[in-house]
Design a protein around this nucleic acid. Structure first.
Lengths: 203, 203
DNA sequence: AAACAGTTTAACCGAATGGTCAAAAGTATT
DNA sequence: AATACTTTTGACCATTCGGTTAAACTGTTT
């Protein structure tokens, strides 16, 4: 049979994703993953020989999923302001669907910085970054954006979208105390963060 | 003897802090902590009965250390703008000394949200937050700050300081590719983030 | 229907890990 | 110097965990 083939592997992959996202590599248990996938533990090792291999597969997939979402930044067609609005809105929408992703990626990168180093070895950010400046060269006179402060601005924008999800557990406790709903806060954040950034960079 | 007493317990606590910060609760090994402290593993259990108790002690200490740094926000004496400048600068200075703290706290809260819920049970953020508005009530006419968007603004400021350290492993890889030095970036961030926020909230 | 190939399982294994214990070493008290 | 108390250690234990193995099961080919 071939149909069930992919099904089993996918079931494993999904279960592994859930468990790894929640517990991290070191906290995850192969037995737990097997249980969630509704299969025998030996079958896990039949499809993915070791825990490390299974983790690598999951991590690569999730990291790619995360990084892919940044590609719209490096394309043209929108004005700078609209691009900022579009990116922040879409990125928050993406994170709403994958709320555990930031915490997972952050922790696993901290635990093993080499892995991400290897993954991004062949990406030339220099070209990507200068592309941004080039795309909006005619608009740049209206904003406080230079090659020098681009790292500050880029990390700032990402901070605004990612941090609330990474620190969600903490933020939710505080918000519940103040009577704020996290989901509503996230919904409002799309516009707030975008206008916040635009206001800040405008000359 | 009493002098050596505290010394041993402190050596253990320091070693445990290092290991837990780097590996997290689930990745840490009691043997590793014992080795780092230069003592026998049995002695670990003599001072801290179980791994959970040792972890709780370390986590509580580190969480308190982190939260304490927010107290200047809730005191008066400075203008709103200077308070923002002061907090961001001091907070980044603090994080420079404790760069692993954000990732550690974030991960452990995600792994067990209940722990932080219990820790902050008796803190009334509502009072703290309204104190901010009260302290600067005379200045508020000049800024786009209301009780409604305070959650957005507060989380925004914290995002700007904390995220670079949480995601340091990733940011450093990208920066090294673009030829930016992380330490220099952090140094510049003190002023950048403060002026960024002030510009954004000014009417 | 027999041989074959891929899939799934139950039972098992060895190493790692958190934790214990009794004895040794060290320190203070008398 | 004898006693009593605390600290430190080496050896050990029980359990958990990642991983293996051989056999059973399923569908396909001949």
């Amino acid at each position: 049979m071939e149909g069930n083939d992919k099904l089993t592997e996918d079931k494993i992959f999904e279960a592994a994703t859930t468990v790894f996202e929640e517990q991290g590599m070191t906290g995850a248990r192969m037995q737990n993953i097997a249980d969630r996938a509704g299969i025998n533990k030996a079958l896990l090792h039949y499809y993915f020989r070791t825990k490390d291999q299974l983790f690598d597969a999951v991590f690569s997939k999730l990291a790619q999923k995360m990084f892919q979402k940044f590609s719209p930044i490096f394309e043209e067609n929108l004005s700078l302001e609209d691009k900022i609005r579009f990116f922040i809105k879409e990125h928050i929408n993406f994170l709403k669907e994958n709320p555990k992703l930031p915490g997972f990626i952050i922790h696993e990168i901290n635990r093993n910085p080499q892995r991400i180093k290897k993954m991004l070895r062949n990406v030339d950010f220099k070209i990507l970054w200068s592309a941004i400046l080039k795309h909006h060269s005619d608009e740049l006179g209206d904003y406080n954006i230079t090659e020098e402060n681009l790292p500050q601005i880029m990390t700032t924008i990402v901070s605004l979208t990612v941090f609330p999800f990474a620190a969600r557990g903490l933020i939710e406790v505080i918000f519940s105390n103040v009577g704020v709903d996290f989901d509503k806060y996230i919904e409002e954040r799309k516009e707030f963060a975008a206008e916040f950034v635009i206001k800040a960079i405008k000359k």
